[in-house]
Lab assay of single mutants.
Amino acid sequence: SEHYTFDGEEQAIRFMRDMEAKNLKYELQIHNGKYIIQVD
């Protein structure tokens, strides 16, 4: 699995939509205002 970190919500949402379009599962965590997305 890989981790991707985003500072902004818009970037994170765009990335998650992209993952959904590719049928990839992901998990979102928010730490200290950063959006951390783990992709299986």
Results as ranks from 00 to 15, higher is better:
His3Ala: 11
Met16Glu: 02
Ile37Phe: 09
Met16Cys: 09
Asn23Asp: 08
Met19Asn: 03
Ile37Met: 02
Val39Gly: 02
Asp7Ser: 08
Phe15Ile: 04
Phe6Ile: 03
Ile36Arg: 04
Gly8Ala: 13
Phe6Trp: 02
Asp40Pro: 12
Asp40Trp: 15
Ala21Pro: 02
Met19Tyr: 03
Ile37Ala: 03
Glu20Ile: 08
Leu28Met: 10
Arg14Ala: 12
Gln11Glu: 15
Tyr4Glu: 02
Lys25Ala: 09
Met16Thr: 03
Gln38Ile: 15
Gln11Gly: 07
Tyr35Gly: 00
Asp7Ala: 07
Gly33Ser: 03
Ile30Tyr: 10
Phe6Asn: 00
Asp18Thr: 07
Gly8Pro: 00
Arg17Gln: 13
Tyr26Trp: 08
Gln29Gly: 04
Glu20Lys: 06
Glu27Trp: 12
Lys25Val: 08
Gln29Asn: 09
Phe15Asn: 02
Tyr35His: 02
Phe15Arg: 02
Leu28Asn: 01
Gly8Ile: 14
Gln11Lys: 06
Met16Leu: 09
Arg17Leu: 11
Ser1Ile: 13
Lys34Ile: 11
Ile30Glu: 05
His3Asn: 10
His3Gln: 13
Arg17Gly: 06
Leu24Ala: 06
Glu27Ile: 14
Gln11Thr: 07
Lys22Ala: 09
Tyr35Gln: 01
Thr5Asp: 05
Glu27Gln: 12
Glu20Tyr: 04
Gln38Thr: 15
Gly33Arg: 02
Tyr35Cys: 02
His3Met: 14
Met19Val: 06
Leu24His: 09
Ile13Trp: 06
Arg14Met: 10
Asp7Gly: 04
His3Pro: 07
Ile13Asp: 08
Phe6Pro: 01
His3Ser: 12
Ile13Gln: 11
Arg17Ser: 09
Leu24Met: 11
Asp18Asn: 07
Asp18Leu: 14
Ile13His: 08
Glu9Val: 11
His31Cys: 15
Glu10Phe: 05
Arg17Trp: 07
Phe6Gln: 00
Tyr4Asp: 01
Asp18His: 09
Gln11Tyr: 06
Ile30Arg: 04
Val39Ile: 11
Tyr26Met: 07
Tyr4Thr: 03
Ser1Thr: 12
Ile36Val: 10
Asn23Thr: 03
Gln11Phe: 06
Glu9Gln: 08
Asp18Trp: 14
Asn23His: 10
Phe15Trp: 04
Glu9Pro: 12
Glu27His: 13
Glu9Tyr: 14
Glu20Arg: 05
Gln29Ile: 14
Gln38Met: 14
Ile36Met: 07
Tyr26Glu: 00
Tyr35Arg: 01
Met19Ile: 10
Ser1Tyr: 13
Thr5Phe: 11
Phe6Lys: 00
Ile37Cys: 03
Tyr35Ile: 06
Lys34Asn: 05
Asn32Val: 03
Gly33Cys: 02
Arg17Tyr: 07
Lys22Thr: 04
Gln38Phe: 15
Val39Met: 08
Gln38Ala: 11
Asp40His: 14
Ile30Met: 09
Leu28Thr: 04
Ala21Trp: 06
Leu28Gln: 02
Leu28Asp: 01
Ala21Phe: 08
Asn23Phe: 06
Gly8Glu: 15
Lys22Phe: 05
His31Thr: 11
Tyr4Cys: 15
Thr5Leu: 10
Lys25His: 13
Leu24Asp: 02
Phe15Glu: 02
Phe15Met: 06
Lys25Met: 08
Asp7Phe: 09
Glu27Gly: 05
Asn32Cys: 12
Glu2Val: 14
Asp40Tyr: 15
Gly8Val: 14
Gln11Pro: 07
Met16Phe: 02
Leu28His: 02
Ile37Val: 13
Tyr35Thr: 02
Lys25Phe: 08
Glu20His: 06
Asp40Thr: 14
Thr5His: 12
Lys25Pro: 09
Gln38Trp: 15
Glu10Asn: 05
Ala12Gly: 01
Glu27Met: 10
Arg14Ile: 11
Arg14His: 08
Asp18Glu: 14
Arg14Asn: 10
Arg17Thr: 09
His3Phe: 15
Ala12Arg: 01
Ile36Asp: 04
Ile30Pro: 01
Val39Ser: 03
Gly8Asp: 15
Lys22Val: 06
Phe6Cys: 08
Leu28Ile: 10
Leu24Ile: 15
Met19Trp: 03
Asn23Leu: 06
Lys34Pro: 00
Asp18Val: 08
Leu24Trp: 06
Ile13Thr: 09
Gln29Cys: 10
Arg17His: 10
Ile37Lys: 00
Met16Arg: 00
Tyr4Gln: 02
Phe6Met: 03
Ala12Lys: 02
Thr5Val: 14
Asn23Arg: 07
Gly8Met: 13
Glu27Phe: 12
Ala12Phe: 06
Gln29Phe: 14
Asn23Tyr: 06
Ser1Gln: 12
Glu27Ala: 09
Lys22Met: 11
Gln29Leu: 13
Phe6Ser: 00
Val39Arg: 02
Lys34Arg: 09
Gly8Lys: 13
Gly8Phe: 14
Phe15Ala: 07
Val39Ala: 03
Met19Glu: 02
Ser1Glu: 10
Tyr35Asp: 00
Phe6Ala: 01
Asn32His: 07
Asp7Thr: 06
Ile36Trp: 06
Ile30Ala: 03
Lys34Leu: 10
Lys25Tyr: 10
Met19Lys: 00
Tyr26Ala: 11
Met16Tyr: 01
Ala21Arg: 10
Glu2Phe: 14
Arg14Phe: 04
Phe15Pro: 01
Thr5Met: 12
Leu24Tyr: 08
Gln38Gly: 05
Tyr35Phe: 11
Tyr4Arg: 04
Val39Leu: 10
Glu20Phe: 06
Ile30Ser: 03
Tyr35Lys: 00
Glu2Cys: 15
Lys34His: 11
Lys25Ile: 08
Thr5Gln: 09
Gly33Ile: 00
Asp7Asn: 06
His3Cys: 15
Ile13Pro: 01
His31Val: 15
Phe6Thr: 01
Ser1Arg: 13
Tyr26Arg: 00
